[in-house]
């Protein structure tokens, strides 16, 4: 269990994380989503022990991560732009990590090196952005950590490699009970792998729950009324968003599906259909609820 307790981080006057708390169950794939500058990367750096928080703690199995090599050995962090020296190769970095991570799996390293289209003796700096991420992933997966922290890992990867990575991550979760924390704006990819999501905005948690539960808690309905009900009537239903296209209204409503259906039926619509929501739509809806929507940005 990874527990984030009242984490606060300040960069001068800027406070990207403000008293943030939630926990991530062991063996889950946790999607960390949020607006730009919401503190996702900062949170990952605090979890991995790169940054020291200004308040609160991050604990893995009850032990703090900061300045704790025993706990840090269970984590592997790939930042949004993995760093390599000019002369770094996958092979010489593997020699570094091999001795630093007691869980290093050499056979797995060899297998991964063959699986990804990378020459481990080539200088990583000469590789493309996507290849560099693959190199970092080979090292992270071969280190066989209990916690893998990935920041924007899908950026620059082709769809096939994205599929491969998702498969490998799922395999690690299934076989070793590895916990994967992925921060990304690519919600489509997250939707495929995550079983939990955490939505953070302006340093705080807006939502942290299982993906299915998140999706079940918000619904989209397409309805056509003979006569449009008054705003007051709709607002009683916890409607987050309304879009109109002619007579057709698309409502995004929070709450229990049956109760929502019952409430709308009471308004005697001519047509009503409940539609499934994507993670992206959940994200937009939740963010709109806190005032972060395109209309607010444009004005």
């Amino acid at each position: 269990m990874l527990e984030i307790k009242n984490i606060t981080k300040k960069f001068g006057d800027n406070v990207p994380l403000d008293n943030l708390s939630f926990s991530i169950p062991t063996g889950s794939v946790f999607g960390l989503i949020g607006s730009n500058g919401s503190g996702k990367s900062t949170l990952l750096r605090i979890i991995s022990g790169v940054y020291q928080s200004d308040g609160g703690t991050v604990e893995i199995d009850g032990m703090p991560t900061f300045e704790n090599p025993v706990v840090k050995e269970q984590c592997f962090f790939i930042s949004d732009f993995p760093y390599f020296y000019n002369d770094s190769t996958v092979e010489n970095l593997a020699s570094l990590y091999r001795d630093l991570y007691s869980s290093w799996d050499q056979e797995k390293y060899i297998a991964l090196s063959e699986m990804f289209p990378i020459n481990t003796k080539d200088k990583i700096m000469h590789m493309s952005k996507g290849m560099q991420r693959q190199a970092a992933l080979i090292l992270a997966l071969a280190a066989n950590p209990k916690y893998i922290l990935l920041d924007e890992i899908f950026d620059g990867l082709d769809p096939v490699v994205r599929q491969l990575i998702k498969k490998l991550l799922m395999g690690m979760v299934a076989e070793n009970g590895t916990t994967v924390i992925i921060s990304s704006h690519n919600l489509r990819e997250l939707e495929d792998v995550c079983d939990h999501i955490g939505l953070i905005h302006r340093g705080g948690v807006i939502m942290e729950k299982e993906l299915d539960e998140a999706k079940l808690g918000i619904h989209r309905l397409q309805v056509v009324f003979r006569e449009e009900p008054e705003e007051e009537t709709l607002s009683q239903m916890n409607v987050v968003n309304i879009r109109r296209q002619g007579k057709m209204m698309t409502l995004t409503v929070k709450g229990n599906a049956e109760e929502i259906e019952k409430a709308v039926s009471a308004l005697e619509p001519v047509y009503m259909e409940m539609l499934p929501l994507t993670l992206e739509e959940v994200f937009i809806s939740e963010m709109e609820a806190v005032g972060y929507d395109i209309n607010n940005i444009i004005k």
């Binding site: 750096r45 940054y51 090599p69 840090k72 760093y83």
Partner: peptide, 15 residues
Amino acid sequence: NKRSVDMFGALPATR
């Protein structure tokens, strides 16, 4: 360098 700080800071070693 922010990126190398990420790499070395995340290693299982104390400062």
